[in-house]
Simulated assay, not measured.
Amino acid sequence: MRHKDDFCRSFLTWNLYDGADFTPIVTATPAQLPERVTEVFRQFLATNFPVRVKKIACEIAAKKPDFIGLQEAELWQLVIPNFRIVTYDFVQLLLTELEEIGLEYMIAVENRNFSAELPDSNGNLVRFLDRDAILVRKRYEHKIVDKQEANYKANLTVQIAGQPFVILRGWSSVDVELDENIFRMINTHLEPNAPNIQVEQAEELLAGPANTELPVIITGDLNSNADGSGTPTYGIFINAGFHDVWKEVGIGPGFTCCQAPDLLNAMSGLNSRIDFILFKNGWEPIEADLVGDKQDSRTSTGLWPSDHAGVSASLVLNCDCCQDF
């Protein structure tokens, strides 16, 4: 007879923070753009992802999740003519840190979203690629039988130096076989600055990969407050039959957003809950916790590990509900 814990799986979702506030670029005139690019890139350097990632890896190691949904898993590059390209790959840096701790994860799937290449005021180019990714812990009993990724049809368009720029966002998913039972994990990051577009993205997700009878987990930064203030997106997922792990088994308010853009605020600024692990079709939540939200989560230089806290959870898959798949 199989023990209930055999079907217990752990998940973690975390927005890693791209490292800078892009407002100066969005509001720049063409003449101002190179200086604003330099300003933003310097803030990215100051928020120091190579240092932050060590704390992020330690927080993840404390939970040892089977599956991780990452948002703002960015790729930054400084292109210095006639010299070299300096690359900051958030996912690879995190995988390396986890491996040094003794935890092996692999990229199961990622979705590539908006990208840009802009000149700075020092004669260089700054490249940026926004990504979301699902990481899977390397364990023999997990078999990925399908993976998908796509960008949303509904996306926000802004003007950068007088030119239209589409802030492309998307989702990715994996179907995982565990002892002849299959479940689906979906990861996404919804638009924060246009409520109507955010709702359209949520509806695309619900009509697409989330429209299944498989047991489903959704991890992500939905940018919609769980208390019902702000956008209606959270309620749309709940009305579609999804349950919120934190609401079911979390203790306390579970705030996940947001620290200051420079990550140096003395006291935590987390005051809203917009990052979620949602589930339906056969999952039973066991426990939930936050990561990266405490003072001892900070780096030795005082940086919070991200402007968001992450959410971790353990759930049991009730195989009576998935035996037909």
Rank of each mutant, 00 (worst) to 15 (best):
E99L: 09
T47D: 08
L263D: 06
I277R: 01
C322S: 12
G170Q: 01
E177Q: 12
L45E: 13
E204V: 03
K153V: 08
M267C: 13
K143G: 09
G220I: 07
C321W: 13
T47Y: 10
H3F: 07
D262W: 05
L129V: 09
A46T: 05
E248V: 06
V51N: 14
L103F: 15
R139V: 15
S10C: 11
R131Y: 15
I197N: 11
V216C: 04
R137M: 14
I238G: 04
L129E: 03
P209D: 03
G282C: 03
T47L: 10
E180W: 01
T96A: 01
T157C: 12
E248C: 08
V26N: 07
D227T: 09
S297Y: 09
T219M: 14
Y152V: 04
F276Y: 10
E213C: 06
G220K: 05
I56D: 13
C322V: 04
I107L: 06
I101A: 02
Q201P: 02
N181I: 07
R84G: 01
I251V: 13
F67W: 15
T219G: 13
L222T: 08
E59P: 09
F279R: 00
D6T: 08
P209I: 07
W76T: 00
A288F: 05
E287S: 10
L125E: 01
N196E: 15
P192V: 08
Y234S: 07
L317G: 03
N223I: 11
G250W: 07
L78S: 04
D244K: 01
S121G: 04
L94F: 15
L33M: 06
I68P: 10
M267D: 15
V91A: 07
F7L: 06
T23L: 13
T23G: 05
R137L: 14
E39P: 02
N181E: 02
D146A: 15
G235C: 08
A194E: 11
F237R: 04
D5M: 04
D324E: 12
E284N: 04
E149A: 11
I286Y: 14
R273M: 11
M106V: 11
D262S: 09
E104S: 10
S300D: 15
K138M: 11
I167W: 05
E203T: 03
T38E: 13
Q198K: 03
A61N: 10
F165C: 05
E110A: 07
C322Y: 06
E200A: 10
H189Y: 15
I68E: 12
A73I: 05
L135N: 07
C319F: 11
L125K: 02
P232F: 12
G282Y: 11
G269M: 11
Q77Y: 10
